[in-house]
Design a protein around this nucleic acid. Structure first.
Length: 974
RNA sequence: GCCGAAGUGGCGGAAUGGCAGACGCGUCGGAUUCAAAAUCCGAUGGGGGUAAACCCCGUGCGGGUUCGAGUCCCGCCUUCGGUACCA
């Protein structure tokens, strides 16, 4: 009795595909190709834990798309690779002494085995790892492109895509050098260039994580001031770091997002991350210490003729505001503690307090900063500035709620119309002047931040906010006191890490005679790429920001240039993002030793037609990739402005749903906190889930604060009450019903290996697609897996004779013409499955195939042609089973490139259809009418129906709604 | 606080403004079996009614548009995800 045996079928076909190179993608399309399709998965980090059930979700979705597209005659590129640099392998090395390379390639082998076991149709001949030396070569080459260019914000040009743009990355050699720099000589010129490169060094306060021994990007630090990886504390330190000038591309990253076929949510995340705001810069003149504003001060007036300077003078405090209309309400100013003007303006009396505050805030970690968000702090500098619109003397404070890195690092504070300023003003008892009247008279203008009408604003009184903004910005520009300004929340990308297991920078530092760096740098010559990692066996962080590579062998670390200059290598390494920024390009031409990608191949394959992966990369990876892509585009290496045309986020797969009840954790805790009657109770009392809250990782009862323990409850111990589940024994105790994220600590992790072993790869693939919509978060269910496994068994028995000794065709399958009814079911199924695949609605496609199977399993004879066509529909989802049965049906070839079945609309038509009849919108009857009946015929048929007639009896028909083929609705009165 | 997504049976989920709950799980009943597993058949939103016919209620809550609303509009509530002094 040959049963459906996945464990023999699946390895058989995997071996067949590998031997026959079924899924290798030739560079040239086959004759008559229906066009190219590039479908990409976000390649995984090959962690030591192996594949997680989340991986096959997106991978199955793309695999279905690709297999379907091959049946449609498309030239499909479907590659896989490894994002293999990263912390865990290095931490493993520190612990065990195993070289990160060994760990990494071992893990890659595991991942490859697991993915191949799932039957994905990747072209494995294109496999790449970001850690391969040839790959590192081109990652470093791209870095050099960035290093060797600058951004010209005013350059107008038309790209290969025919779009006109302003602003372009250009070769550094094209950077105009001002005469005063030129006159200072070669060193000055080089410094001038270095400051303007797309890859540049900066000495800035950065997020230093002692536990990880590295600096982290802002993006890698959580709101709580912890590292995203590992949750270790992060502190601020001033260090020399490599930065990438992503901010130069802010406007294009924002604008060119619009036409992409991406989820609106991801676009909006990126928009918020870029954070464009439009406002004005305004100059306030600082008064000399002890001096009052007086008529002899002509500085304001002089600006009318001198105009608005590009850089503010020493006696000017320049602020950025999105609300220039509230200038009349600016009662004080605040500068960031790091602001350079502080030293110039602070008065003798305030100096000590200011210095003390600056010291404190410099050491503040991000954690402290957010903690202090509740209460504003700051110190008065003793200095005043002149409000340009009314000459009012405005005190200047320093406070760390103003950030040096945004805008000009200084603000005008309008406490009446800004929450933060109001809080600060209230703390320090500063004046609050309302200058915006809310549209609703009853609303208090103090604390009102929305648009309204100007008050207390001199001649501008009565002007609506939007108009006022434009007007005063123009007026200030006229007087040379301000101008319109745009700001972005986006910061330059901190690109260096202090780790061993990453790409080395292709950079040399020049040394002086004493071996000290001169500050001059040069790129490694392209012919010397790649810069490979030196062999080392000590990877441990030293607790100092000296990278592990600074302990590399001398031969790696130093060399003497042709011109005799002594050089030392850059010892920072690149972040993990570097490799993933451009891997989608390399897949098109993975073995090219002359270039990172052949331009013809780039033109042919790009952009990626569909990119599927987790939402956790919505901002970082996708923004970084787009940035690199645009820079390479500007430099003429790429022909399309965007890398990923369509993006889909797969939803997270949670663990199996759990029921949790809570009860008092221990006797002592409850006996003194709760009522007497409970104290005598032997059983520790349950607490309704509604009264439970989480504090510091502990569950506690809301009112009493008593510590609780969570208890897993069985299905049969609860009952449904309203919207809640409650204990059967005590209906007042609400039980929490929820699926949690899979985690080792919770013990709810599902291992794909186990599923494949017990149910097979086809069942795992099918189940993950059947769970629900791809984009949605959904809980795992073991009995759901059994459900689809049973379905596969039904498909097997529909085609195979399970009474026979060996695998033979089911005798019900005959070479006969399908009946009209069979044809209808078949063509309905073809239509539905085809359309569902195109919509990526895989769960409903599977439902349709189940319906087909339910229908045809009961039929005898079963036409062979219908069976063959059905197998093609099933094959993208369950390729192993489909291939096996395809063979059983007598086909000798693989079905991988067989033509997709076509449906015939004519065969979908039924001769008679059932139509609902409503009376006043309520369903009253169903009638059968010939297909294609017109409204009149339908109405007549409806009226002729007995129960409809009864409903209409003695009533007046006001209106009849008749939609041919859909329904009849009588609107009646009386 | 702000931004985004979502609320439909016991559960996962289906429904171009037109028969709510396709399909699967679970449950119940039956067939097969010495028995079980596997498999097959049937029932299954809630309430009333006689296990029929039939009737009433039902897509988070409250309004609205419409002959007709799970679907569109307005206002709330809840959950999940992201974000956080960005002037």
């Amino acid at each position: 009795m040959p049963r459906y045996d996945h464990s023999s079928i699946e390895p058989k076909w995997q071996a067949f595909w590998a031997e026959n190179r079924t899924f290798e993608t030739p560079d040239q399309p086959k004759e008559g190709s229906a066009g190219k399709l590039y479908v990409l998965d976000m390649f995984p980090y090959p962690s030591g834990d192996g594949l997680h059930v989340g991986h096959p979700e997106g991978y199955t979705a793309t695999d279905i798309m690709c297999r379907y597209a091959r049946h449609q005659g498309k030239h499909v590129l479907h590659p896989m690779g490894w994002d293999a640099f990263g912390l865990p392998a290095e931490q493993h090395a520190i612990k065990t002494g195993t070289h990160p390379r060994d760990t990494t390639y071992k893990n890659i082998d595991t991942f490859r085995r697991q993915l191949q076991m799932l039957g994905f149709s990747y072209d494995w001949s294109r496999e790449i790892s970001t850690t391969d030396e040839e790959y590192v070569h081109w990652t470093q080459w791209i870095f050099l492109q960035l290093f060797n260019s600058w951004f010209d914000p005013t350059f107008e040009w038309t790209g290969p895509d025919g779009v006109k743009r302003t602003g372009k990355a250009r070769p550094i050699a094209d950077l105009p050098i001002p005469d005063d720099v030129k006159s200072q000589g070669e060193t000055a010129i080089r410094s001038y260039q270095d400051e303007r490169r797309l890859a540049y060094q900066s000495e800035a306060p950065v997020n230093w994580c002692p536990a990880l021994g590295t600096v982290l990007a802002n993006e890698e630090v959580t709101a709580e001031g912890k590292s995203e990886r590992g949750n270790h504390p992060v502190e601020r330190r001033k260090l020399r770091q490599w930065m990438l000038r992503i901010t130069a591309f802010a406007e294009r990253l924002l604008n060119e997002l619009e036409p992409l076929d991406w989820p609106e949510s991801v676009k909006s995340l990126q928009r918020n991350w870029i954070g464009k705001s439009i406002g004005a810069e305004v100059d306030f003149f600082v008064l000399e210490p002890g001096k009052k504003a007086d008529a002899s001060d002509k500085r304001l007036d002089q600006r009318a003729s001198s105009g608005y300077p590009a850089k503010p003078g020493d006696d000017v405090l320049r602020v950025y505001t999105t609300r220039p209309d509230t200038l009349f309400g600016a009662t004080y100013m605040v500068v960031a503690p790091e602001h350079p003007i502080v030293d110039r303006i602070v008065t003798a009396e305030q100096k000590e307090a200011v210095e003390e505050y600056r010291r404190k805030s410099a050491n503040k970690t991000d954690l402290d900063r957010t903690d202090l968000a509740k209460e504003k702090t700051g110190v008065f500098t003793g200095a005043y500035a002149l409000n340009p619109v009314n000459g009012a003397e405005t005190p200047i404070w320093i406070a760390d709620y103003v950030l040096m890195s945004y805008g000009t690092g200084a603000i005008m504070a309008v406490p009446a119309h800004d929450e933060r300023d109001l809080e600060f003003a209230q703390t320090f008892d500063l004046p609050v002047i309302p200058v915006v009247q809310p549209p609703d008279e009853k609303t208090d203008p103090i604390g009102f931040t929305d648009p309204g009408t100007a008050v207390n604003s001199g001649d501008y009184d009565g002007t609506p906010t939007a108009e006022f903004k434009k007007k005063i910005t123009a007026d200030l520009a006229q007087l040379g006191l301000g101008r319109e300004a745009v700001n972005y929340r986006l910061r330059d990308w901190l690109f260096s890490r202090q780790r061993y297991w990453g790409e080395p920078f292709p950079i040399w530092h020049e040394l002086d005679a004493d071996g000290n760096p001169t500050g001059m740098i040069r790129g490694v010559d392209e012919s010397e790429l790649p810069v490979t990692l030196p062999d080392m066996d000590d990877f441990a962080p030293k607790g100092t920001p000296d990278p592990p590579l600074s302990a590399a062998p001398e031969s790696w670390l130093y060399k003497t240039a042709a011109d005799g200059t002594r050089l030392r290598r850059e010892t920072n390494s690149m972040p993990q993002w570097a490799g993933s920024c451009w891997y989608y390009l390399r897949f098109c031409d993975p073995k090219n030793t002359e270039a990172f990608i052949d331009p013809e191949k780039e033109k042919y394959w790009l952009p990626v037609d569909c990119y599927i992966g987790g939402a956790e990369h919505a901002v970082l990876h996708l923004l970084y990739s787009r940035f690199w892509h645009k820079a390479l585009f500007d430099l003429g290496h790429l022909s399309k402005p965007e890398p990923f045309q369509k993006l889909v986020n797969q939803g997270m797969i949670l663990g199996e749903a759990e029921l949790t009840a809570y009860r008092i954790a221990d006797e002592s805790a409850y006996s003194d906190k709760r009522d007497e009657k409970f104290a005598t109770d032997l059983q520790r009392p349950w607490v309704s889930a509604r009264n439970v809250t989480e504090e510091d990782g502990q569950y506690v009862e809301k009112e009493t604060g008593a510590v609780l323990e969570a208890v897993m409850i069985d299905n049969d111990q609860v009952t449904k009450k309203g919207n809640d589940f409650v204990l059967k024994d005590d209906a007042s105790i609400v039980v929490e019903s929820r699926a949690h994220k899979m985690s080792k600590s919770r013990g709810n992790v599902i291992n794909p290996d186990d599923i494949v072993k017990n149910y097979g790869a086809d069942a795992l693939r099918l189940y993950e697609m059947f769970m629900g919509p791809l984009e949605q978060t959904k809980p795992w269910s073991m009995s759901g897996v059994e459900g689809v496994y049973r379905f596969l068994g039904r498909v097997w028995r529909m085609m195979v004779d399970d009474a026979a000794e060996s695998v033979t065709l089911n005798p019900a399958i005959k070479d006969v013409e399908p009946t009209e009814a069979q044809d209808r079911v078949l063509h309905k199924t073809i239509k539905a499955v085809t359309e569902d695949i195109e919509k990526l609605s895989f769960n409903t496609a599977i439902s349709r195939m189940m319906e087909f199977t339910n229908e045809f399993s009961g039929q005898n004879p079963r036409p062979k042609s219908a069976m063959s066509q059905f197998l093609l529909l099933l094959s993208p989802f369950a390729p192993h089973l489909a291939e096996e049965l395809w063979q059983v049906l007598g086909h000798s070839d693989s079905l991988a490139y067989a033509a997709w079945p076509k449906f015939d609309e004519a065969k979908l038509v039924e001769s008679e259809i059932e139509i609902p009849v409503q009376v006043n919108g309520k369903l009253r009857a169903k009638i059968k009418v010939p297909a294609g009946s017109d409204a009149k015929a339908m109405e007549a048929a409806a009226k002729a129906d007995e129960s409809v007639a009864a409903q209409l009896e003695g009533k007046q028909i006001v209106k009849t709604v008749c939609i041919p083929g859909r329904l009849v609705n009588f609107v009646v009165k009386g």
